[in-house]
Design a protein around this nucleic acid. Structure first.
Lengths: 239, 239
DNA sequence: CGTTAATTTGAGACCATTCAATTTCGGTGG
DNA sequence: CCACCGAAATTGAATGGTCTCAAATTAACG
């Protein structure tokens, strides 16, 4: 039994992405790391930054984000507990976007070299790591469709569907999910204004599809929400 | 000297993404493949498809694309000559989006197993392959920003900047680029309507920033186009 | 409880869309 | 080489979804 119990969720996550042997699992659990706490809004990664470490969210949420010259902000993806925040940095070296903490969060900081060594020595783990970055890419592709071709109602419905499914696949139980997002952040994720996001959320609530208070999301009518969102979870590669 | 001269551009591309030894290069050039020609609009990859092969564009262009239930279409990325069309399929297995030929194109079809073997045996090549999929992801992230937070003018300007830079980095000379895209496809890539795309292009032409006829793109005023697009090529990871 | 952040509401303006018609372009056959 | 054809590009006018700007209300937090 390893002493790094906190990496157990990572081992569980990767074992879904590739078949892992007992030794593979032990190697993952044996990864060296230090823990760090991030305040709400703190930066986990900064654009242009070169880092010798990778960050794995242990508790709490974060989001990828890019800023425009005019001050606009676009959120590219939300990061859920036990997801890597910058696994791509292990290979590419320099970050091309920012990652900020959504609420107070805690992360495991792992030396980049340790991850690369692991990938070199353990082919199965390597496949899982690679797959992890590829699923991240698939999600972003779906986001392009979301902001590019869906109206505000479908856009928000789709985002909520995705978050709910991802949380459920990560082990969350029931129809009530912890997701401490503000409407402004939801707006930046969907390419809408906070005002219009608010009105659209109200419509979804009025029709009894969702319940979203700051802190938690509850899907009241999956069928209808899925329909409104034109949601198909194939792109999550998880079923 | 290898007989697979057609894979030389691939070897050149990957050698920019990771330091390759002589043997690494030879191994790339020795990859088995068959050639196939695709007509305009032909599908190279279909959503949901499982394939034992990966496709590398040799000549011509293609684009990633997803269809909505209501018939809408969103283009996720354009694929340029000597780029892999579905490298992610080597790991994930099933395709989560479609890839269509932009014009008449020719591709090298490579067995998935051969690529995976190469990745297993040659760490440097593996790194290059992984980096290739990560840069693809970085481009898509920028597209989310593009369709999410930029107005039509900046959106189209940004797309044209990106294509021009990518073509130039791939070896295209001068300020005149071969890029046989229709305005309708440009519209599907930017999340706009063909009509508005047309009007926006006219504005960019009127101001002397670009020249875009079906078949070729010419940047007349880099400085101004870059400015209009809020373009920064960091995300292309190529300089 | 006081203070700031977050959500909600209203009204007017605007960017992009829709619908439809026209013109131009690229390719093909006579 | 020209007539023809379908695809692509262009134009116009009206509609509409989303934004902007402000202000008011509610919730969160020390």
């Amino acid at each position: 039994m390893s002493e790094n119990l906190h990496l157990a969720p990572l081992e569980r996550r990767w074992s879904k992405l590739a078949p892992l042997t007992h030794d593979d699992r032990e190697a993952i659990l044996a990864l060296p790391f230090r823990r760090e706490v991030f305040a709400k809004d703190a930066y986990l990664v900064r654009e242009g930054q070169q880092s010798a470490e990778c960050t794995l969210l242990l508790r709490g949420f974060a989001y990828r984000q890019m800023l425009l010259r005019d001050g606009g902000r676009q959120i590219i993806n939300f990061l859920l507990p036990n997801e890597f925040v910058d696994l791509q940095a292990a290979v590419l070296g320099t970050a091309d976007h920012n990652v900020q903490s959504l609420n107070r969060s805690e992360a495991a900081i792992i030396p980049r070299s340790a991850l690369l060594d692991l990938a070199d020595v353990r082919p199965n783990v390597r496949t899982a790591m690679w797959a992890d970055t590829l699923i991240d890419a698939a999600i972003v592709r779906e986001w392009v469709v979301n902001v590019g071709r869906r109206d505000s109602r479908a856009r928000i419905a789709h985002l909520l569907c995705e978050i709910a499914v991802r949380l459920r696949n990560a082990g969350a139980a029931g129809e009530m999910f912890d997701f401490p997002v503000t409407q402004e952040q939801l707006a930046d994720a969907t390419g809408l204004t906070p005002v219009h996001t608010n009105r659209t959320l109200q419509a979804l609530r009025r029709e009894g599809l969702i319940q979203l208070t700051s802190g938690s999301l509850r899907i009241l009518n999956w069928q209808a929400l899925r329909e409104a969102a034109d949601f198909d979870d194939l792109y999550l590669h998880q079923s």
